[in-house]
Amino acid sequence: MHLCERCNKPATVHLTEISGGKPHEVHLCDACAQEAGYIQQSHVPINELLNQFLKSHAQMPDVQTQRCPDCGLTWQEFKDTGLLGCGRDYDLFEKQLQGVIERAQHGGTHHTGKTSASSAPGAAPAAEDPVKLRQAEIKRLKKELDIAVKEESYETAARIRDQIKSMEGPS
């Protein structure tokens, strides 16, 4: 077994480095390899953060059963993938997300930068823009469609579907 060249702990990282055109072997432990820049973390390891966080917060009552009505995401799914399913999840899971975000963002908890055009004070309501208006209407119709399908009102569903299709067609 190789020992870390720097601290003599068991080496876990084994590399061949080319220096001066000649290969030469490097053996390091995780900590030393990270410090030397051989291992670089491209993403904050969100799963790791989550695990730490969840351990410290044991089971929150509703978390297990809660499901986003818009996209269907559960907290467990987020834990598995590190990805949220829609914008609403930020509200819905705000309590659980708070700690995760604070860690991932090195203490950042609130947005202080640029605001969106539609949220800016004095911004024209989104509905005045024909494109946005159409988007909003399509979104509303899709929710109606979901309900119609769930209620098995297939005639209504077909009508709504045609309506959506015509709105989505080339404008």
Partner: peptide
């Protein structure tokens, strides 16, 4: 976009 979290992204990072 949310007032608290700003522009919303798939990954909270």
């Amino acid at each position: 976009f949310s007032q608290r979290f700003g522009f919303l992204t798939a990954c909270p990072t």
